[in-house]
Every structure is written in structure tokens, then in C-alpha cells.
């Protein structure tokens, strides 16, 4: 049985779904960031798969590279914010970081 485009799309879709579940259900801020990484990886798998099976060339791979770069920047800034939240609230539960409410 040949491996086709759909196989990779299934893997990407499942990565996205689990990432979405992680982002929406976690109360730990680091866990939420992990979910974002999963979503970006799902998109990356799709980029590489479409590049290989539909487009050809390397444009899709370069898009995926930019996604990786932006994910690294996002992780650095996001975890710095998590550390700042921890210093302020002494917890990283996202329910308690509500100073700007009301």
C-alpha cells in the first residue's frame, strides 16, 4: 500500500486536534504553550506534505521553516511571560491571572 498525501493530512489533522484540545482545556500556562506548538507542527506537516505531493520544489518547505522560526520566537516570549506571571501571582494557573478583568 502506497503512502499517499491523505496519510500525512490525517497525521496533521490529528496533531491539530490534540493541540486544540490542549490549548482549550489546560489551566497550566506552560501546557497551553505546548498545545500551540502541537498546532504549529500540524500545520508544518501539512505544508511539507502539500509541497511534496502537490506543488513540488521547495516553497512549502521554506514556509515550514518560517513557521519553525516564528514558533521558536513565540516560545521564548511566551515562556518569558509565563515566568513574569509566576513572579507576580506565585502560580501559573491561567484562571488566577485576571488583574485586568472588570
Amino acid at each position: 500500500m502506497q503512502i499517499s498525501l491523505s496519510h500525512f493530512l490525517i497525521v496533521g489533522a490529528l496533531l491539530f486536534c490534540f493541540g486544540l484540545v490542549t490549548v482549550t482545556t489546560r489551566r497550566n500556562a506552560v501546557g497551553v504553550l505546548m498545545g500551540v506548538e502541537l498546532i504549529l507542527n500540524g500545520a508544518n506537516v501539512n505544508f511539507a506534505a502539500f509541497n511534496h505531493y502537490v506543488v513540488g520544489g521547495v516553497s512549502g518547505q521554506i514556509f515550514a521553516l518560517f513557521v519553525i522560526v516564528l514558533a521558536a520566537a513565540e516560545a521564548a516570549v511566551g515562556l518569558a511571560i509565563v515566568l513574569a506571571v509566576f513572579q507576580t501571582f506565585k502560580t501559573i494557573d491561567v484562571r488566577y491571572a485576571d488583574l485586568m478583568r472588570e
Binding site: V11, V21, T22, G35
Partner: peptide, 8 residues
């Protein structure tokens, strides 16, 4: 996929 499920 198992890793992703583990994260979630």
C-alpha cells in the same frame, strides 16, 4: 499521534 495525545 500518541505523543500528541499524551500532551493533551
Amino acid at each position: 499521534i500518541a505523543g500528541a495525545a499524551g500532551v493533551a
